[in-house]
Design a protein around this nucleic acid. Structure first.
Lengths: 200, 200
DNA sequence: GTCTATAATATGATAGAC
DNA sequence: GTCTATCATATTATAGAC
């Protein structure tokens, strides 16, 4: 028997809620509208969730799950540019993933209003990425692959454009505008950045 | 006699509304709360503004006014690093300006929800900055100051970290955390970037 | 697990006295 | 220009029948 005992309705609620939260934020999404989108009455929804916040928390539960499961940075980082390219491939995949994009929208809307979400973003997303990249750059410096600098600052410089491009992708997609031009930015960033730091 | 006939109450409404919008967004701010903060009744507020949206539009009216009044980029850009440093000084001033910070918060909250605000951000902020920087980088390339590359892409790479640092400043300030460490990032960015592109 | 009914409250906005 | 009073509607949430 399946371990996942989550009912079909509950799954449908989370899915509908995610879409509405991504479009109108927490306050702009009413329990009524979620229920309506699912095709049930408001009261029936309370059979699956304690309240509106519980729905939101479930929707946000894997907002910061990251695919950057780095096993061995010490070794991987020695590959230099290839390591950075690999990181960006993952980042780009996440940026264009439909579900992740919805969660990213929710995060951006609530980031400045929700203290918990804000802390999680800084800890689980920003600091985690910075720590990973810092270590990698440190290794690359020790290996003589790149010029010497503050690894953590370099990590910030490397990460920031990725975030900015991801935000642009999201903004374009909201208005159904093509993202082909934006798509290449990620790879160009790796090339440009590596050209900037590499010791030839 | 003064040209500005805006009443004291109207000014107070805009000020209070700005603070509330910056904290809780458009939907999270009720007309009641604005009136309460001003110290008047809700109905009195409608004597100064047609409706809630009119208040919001007034608050947002100079959200994209920029201090980057570049007279002569063709000449200024030839100064190379000094031009970039000057740009960043302006950007940093805006990032730490109390009023501008509130407007930035509002923008970030509504950016993904309000199509008009989104378009204005892309046109008046992003594209304007990219156009300015692109032209500057183009001049620098022609002058042999920096390595050859796509000027517009380079502009993106230069602008993105500034935006990211500004966002971090804003997030830290919401939680009343010190921004001294962040403060130096802006100058370090200029140094790092110039080191990356300059022809020595 | 869903429905109808209902409660308590919040919201945007208006009417009319002062 | 501000007040009290009021309205229509929307909102979160609960009670109880089926």
């Amino acid at each position: 028997m399946p371990v996942n005992r989550t009912s079909k309705t509950k799954t449908a609620i989370v899915k509908s809620a995610m879409e509405l939260f991504a479009l109108h934020g927490y306050k702009g999404t009413s329990v009524r509208k979620i229920a309506s989108k699912v095709g049930i009455r408001e009261s029936a929804l309370y059979n699956h969730f304690k309240n509106k916040e519980a729905i939101f928390l479930t929707v946000c539960s894997d907002i910061f799950t990251t695919p950057f499961a780095q096993k061995n940075i010490q070794d991987d980082a020695k590959k230099g540019k290839k390591f950075l390219a690999g990181f960006v491939v993952q980042y780009k995949l996440v940026s264009f993933d439909t579900k992740k994009e919805k969660l990213f929208r929710i995060m951006m809307i609530e980031l400045l209003q929700d203290p918990v979400l804000r802390k999680n973003f800084l800890d689980e997303s920003h600091h985690r990425n910075i720590a990973l990249l810092s270590e990698a750059f440190f290794v690359m410096m020790q290996s003589g692959l790149i010029r010497s600098s503050d690894p953590m600052f370099m990590a910030n410089e490397f990460l920031a454009p990725l975030f900015y491009y991801r935000l642009q992708v999201t903004l374009f997609r909201i208005d159904s505008e093509p993202t082909t031009a934006l798509s290449t930015l990620f790879e160009k960033h790796v090339d440009f950045f590596w050209e900037s730091i590499a010791i030839h």
